[in-house]
Every structure is written in C-alpha cells, then in structure tokens.
Amino acid sequence: MRPSGRALDAIRTVSIEPGFSHHAEGSVLIRMGGTEVLCTASVEGRVPPFLRGQGKGWVTAEYGMLPRATHTRGSREAAKGKQSGRTQEIQRLIGRSLRAVVDLAALGEMTITLDCDVLNADGGTRCASITGAWVALSLAVRKLVETRVLKASPITGQVAAISCGLTEMGAVADLDYAEDSTAEADANFILTDGGGIVEVQATAEKSPFTDEQFAELMRLARLGTARLFEAQRAALGTP
C-alpha cells in the first residue's frame, strides 16, 4: 500500500480555483494533495530587448516558495540577494512548458509573466506550477480577447505536468513527498493534450532503470495528465 493509500496509477485529489488573486489578469490556486501553488498571470505591453521589433510576444515565469512551505523554514531568497540554482531551473522549465503551446507571433508584442508561488509543498511543486500556470495564462488570454486586445487566442493546446517514480511497490503516479524522498527513480513529464512531449526529466536515484520501466512511467504519466487536462478544462468552464 502506498503511504497515501492510493492505487499505483491514482493521482492526488486535484482542485483548481480560478480568480484567486483579485488584481492579476489571470490567476488560480491549484491544489494537488498537500501541495498548493498560487499561479498568477500578468500582462505587459512590451517584450524583452531581444524580441523588440519582431512582432512576437513572450511568455515567461518566476517561481518561489514561502519560507514555511516545507517542514522546516527556508530563508527567503530575496534576503540572500540571489536565487538558488533550483529556483532558476524550475522557473525556466515553467516558461519553456508554456511557450510550447503559445503562438508567440499571434500574441503580438506583449509579455505574459506567470508567477508561481508555493504556499504548501508536499512534492510535485514544479508539476503543479505548470499545470496551474496554464489555466492562469488561459484566463489572462481570455480577458485580452474579450477586451479586443487580441482577435483570437494564441494558445494552441493544453500543457500539464506530473511526476512518476519507481518505488519498492513498482511504478507509481504523482509522487508526494514521502514517496519522492525514498524513490529509486523519479521523473517529471510535461505533456500536451495532443500527445506531444514538451520535456521529460528522469533520474535514477539508486540503480539504473530499464526501457520497460521507463515505458511504464510514461504510461502512468499519460493517464495522470489526462486527468489534469480534465481538471484544467473544468476550471475554465470549457468542454
């Protein structure tokens, strides 16, 4: 039995609450089990210098954790004067994942920044951030279309992310902290609703895993993200 009592292919209870932030163009509070992330989308009428004059927009992300999002207090990175390598890696991952499903030329010369702030961490914070950020992005784009800033949505599909791993019980979906901290291998899958693969981060913590084991992790990831796509659509009120 998994620590949570879930079946091997079962993901944690997921809820996505839109409109959590009063001022952002798009926002959600996503809960995946004990992990909670506030995702906000902010729109600016400018692009980074390297894109100026090209008629293209930009989608980027920032990521952070509250000091007591984890079991022990972590220092604020602002107090240290620099971001950790982990933070930089995760926020770049979130940005890449979202840009994979946005037509930047159709967006035009504006920037949408997704801020993902972890309120409570129980494993899978980067995956919850990507999944929630897509909904926040969609809400911001919906507002731009409604106000006729954009003629049509530049979003080309859905993207969601899930962690899967190898434990003493075998391959399992959607690791919580108890499983992630003891897993023999763990992987983050960022997938699209059209079946595309945006990115896979897979690491053997103990002994190397086989092609067959990786294929089983991918199967679980496909099942898990299908449920996340449903949750995203439900939060947006779309079929």
Rank of each mutant, 00 (worst) to 15 (best):
G195C: 02
R148E: 09
E205W: 00
L175T: 13
K206C: 05
G195R: 05
S153N: 03
G170S: 08
A202E: 07
G170I: 12
L150T: 04
T192M: 04
R142Q: 15
A171P: 14
D180W: 04
G170M: 06
I162M: 08
A171M: 12
E199C: 06
Q201E: 12
D186T: 00
D193K: 09
S163E: 10
P154S: 08
Y177D: 05
A204P: 04
A234E: 15
T147W: 07
V198Y: 05
M169C: 05
G196C: 00
L175W: 12
T167L: 15
T210D: 15
E146P: 05
M218V: 10
A160D: 06
I155E: 13
L223T: 13
K151T: 12
D176L: 01
E184S: 11
I190D: 04
D211S: 09
I190A: 03
R142A: 15
F229A: 02
L175R: 09
R222A: 15
A204Q: 00
V198L: 09
T210W: 08
E146T: 14
F229D: 06
K151W: 04
M218A: 10
D176M: 11
A161L: 01
A202M: 13
F209C: 11
I155L: 15
G195W: 00
A234D: 10
A183S: 13
D211A: 11
T192P: 02
D211K: 03
E205V: 00
G170H: 02
R222H: 12
L144F: 01
I162Y: 06
E168Y: 02
A221H: 08
T225A: 08
L144E: 02
A160E: 06
T192N: 03
A185N: 02
D180T: 08
R148P: 03
Y177P: 05
V145C: 10
L228Y: 06
F209D: 06
L220M: 14
G194H: 01
G196Y: 05
L191T: 10
A152I: 03
K206V: 00
A215R: 15
K206F: 01
V145K: 04
E168P: 08
A204E: 03
V198G: 13
E179Q: 12
A185K: 06
I155W: 07
I197Y: 00
M169I: 09
E146F: 09
G194P: 09
L144S: 01
E205D: 01
M169F: 02
Q201R: 06
L191W: 01
A160S: 10
L191D: 04
G165I: 13
F209L: 07
T225G: 01
A161M: 10
L175D: 14
Q201A: 07
K143S: 11
G195E: 03
A161E: 11
A226Q: 14
L217P: 07
L223G: 14
Q232C: 13
L166A: 13
G196N: 08
G165A: 11
G170E: 07
P208M: 03
R142T: 14
E216Y: 04
T167Q: 13
S163I: 10
G157R: 01
E205R: 01
